[in-house]
Design a protein around this nucleic acid. Structure first.
Lengths: 119, 119
DNA sequence: ATACAGTACCTTGCAACACATAGTACCGAA
DNA sequence: TTCGGTACTATGTGTTGCAAGGTACTGTAT
């Protein structure tokens, strides 16, 4: 493997690492706007170029549900099995607010640290 | 533990998660401006409110050195043991550039996803 | 020469989450 | 009954920030 390929691979891994903690914020944010089921969420993430597969999203939704941040209801579908529609709980709303503050603080630190103003 | 405390604790953990991949970018960025030794780096990170301890920084620097992104030279000090001064390698400079692009992409996605313009 | 405080550096194991893989189940159409 | 499409579930892996515990060097005081 050439150095360029090693660099590309390292940058791909870095991409994954940078999504930690951020993905859940985006997912909660999408659900906070309108109750959604997984396929919707995947589409909306795709629109903002956050490419996520089912194998990543389902465990994340499970964990958020287990942590009391989400709840869901089943709804029939005309095109296949019933779907799980997710909503934020009260705790989830508060947590999302905190996540956004965490994120804003981090972005501010990074901007100062790298001396770059985000356009 | 009250719910508020659980929320606080969860947000602290989230803070740690969000730093993944980002901390190394900031550290490389600081070193790219001027060769530094660990204590300098900790100070500069502190200035931008990225609080990092030695137990976090030394393993990170070790890993970056092992990955060929950093190199170092020893310099005497007038106030204690000799110090390791770090510089970026050519690969490190290229990698840092890629990290910043990764970061910019992520920030853009988050802004679109959370419908919030960073001021 | 020895002891000590301050400074610098090192190593290791843990926790947590993004991800990939493999799988099951339901529904409508053929 | 079979099949394609859709929806969901479970689990193990890899990676990095962090905490904890440690060693070593230097200058100062005794």
């Amino acid at each position: 493997m050439s150095l360029d390929n090693q660099l590309e691979e390292a940058l791909m891994k870095s991409k994954t690492q940078m999504r930690r903690g951020v993905l859940e914020m985006c997912v909660l944010s999408i659900i906070s706007e309108e109750e959604s089921y997984p396929s919707d969420i995947i589409e909306k993430l795709k629109e903002v170029e956050l490419i996520v597969k089912e194998g990543t999203l389902y465990p994340l939704l499970s964990r958020l549900k287990k942590d009391g941040l989400l709840q869901y209801s089943w709804k029939e579908s005309t095109q296949g099995p019933p779907r799980k529609y997710f909503q934020l709980t009260t705790t989830g709303i508060a947590f999302l607010q905190g996540l956004k503050e965490n994120w804003d603080d981090l972005v501010s630190s990074v901007n100062q640290s790298t001396k770059k103003i985000t356009k």
